[in-house]
Amino acid sequence: MEMRLVSEWLRVCTVREIPRQGSRVIDLAGTAVAVFRTAKDEIHAIEDRCPHKGGPLSQGIVIDDRVACPLHGWLIRLDTGHACAPDEGCARRYRIKVEQDELFIATDD
């Protein structure tokens, strides 16, 4: 199944396909993006690279609106991509939207 996308919004999957308090990895032509679904069903997408030493954030434990990096335990905020104090750093954030349970990601920013 191959489909062309007209807008800059790419359809990713349905929200239900992402485990609650978990994540899915999207491979955007070689760039790994992690989409998270929190306990409250909020969806966030950030680059799948920890600002510390590049750990795959998608593999971490999700706590509220943060994820604990699986490598050395930094806490990264899902809504901003920022590391929680006292650590410093930021992972790139991606715009997303949800329409009727379908998740879209923006590729333009």
Binding site: M1, E2, M3, R4, L5, L10, R11, V12, C13, E17, I18, P19, R24, V25, I26, D27, L28, A29, A32, T107
Partner: peptide, 21 residues
């Protein structure tokens, strides 16, 4: 399965398209 398989998009010209599952 979702744990192991990423949702993959390829570049085709200017656009990205989803790879077949």
């Amino acid at each position: 399965k979702h744990e192991f398989v990423p949702i993959r998009f390829h570049r085709k010209g200017d656009a990205l398209s989803q790879e077949a599952e």
